[in-house]
Amino acid sequence: MTLTALLRRVKAASDTPGRFATAHGFRRSFRDWSSEHGYARDLAERALADTVANKVEAAYHRTDLLEQRRPMMEAWTAQVFQS
């Protein structure tokens, strides 16, 4: 929500008249990039802070995978600032 809040604050234009841009495209770009670079789905979803929809799976999957996410996020940062 931080990126969406920023886009609203700066009134970033959207393709839809009367609306502001959202971060959905940025999220989708990250998911595509992480898949293309061989990162596990769970790792990418944890990086996006998504919740596990299945309650049973959520009960058993409590880690935030922080140390495994760190190299992925550093590589994503390099990708974003390279583009």
Rank of each mutant, 00 (worst) to 15 (best):
R62L: 13
L3H: 06
S83Q: 14
A21Q: 07
L7V: 07
W33Y: 10
V52L: 13
A53H: 12
G25A: 05
R9N: 08
A23L: 02
V52P: 05
A5T: 12
R41Y: 07
N54I: 07
W33Q: 06
L6K: 06
F20T: 15
F81T: 15
L7E: 07
K11C: 12
H24K: 15
A49M: 11
L43D: 07
L43M: 11
R8E: 12
A5S: 13
R62I: 11
F26H: 03
V52Q: 14
F20N: 14
R69S: 05
V56N: 06
A40R: 14
E36V: 02
E45V: 09
D42C: 00
A49V: 09
L3N: 02
T16N: 05
S29T: 15
E67M: 08
D64V: 04
F26V: 03
T2Y: 06
R31H: 00
M1Y: 08
L3I: 12
A12Y: 13
S35E: 10
V52D: 03
P71Y: 07
Y60T: 08
L3C: 04
L66C: 06
A12P: 11
Y60Q: 09
H24C: 05
E45A: 10
T22W: 01
A12E: 15
R31W: 00
A5D: 13
R8T: 05
V52R: 10
M1W: 07
V10K: 08
E67S: 13
R41A: 10
R46P: 04
R69K: 03
D32G: 04
D32E: 06
A53P: 05
A13T: 02
G25K: 02
V52G: 04
L48Y: 09
M73S: 03
H61L: 10
R46Q: 09
V80N: 06
T51S: 14
A40V: 01
T22G: 02
V52K: 05
R31L: 02
R19G: 00
P17A: 14
T2M: 07
Q79H: 15
F30L: 14
K11S: 14
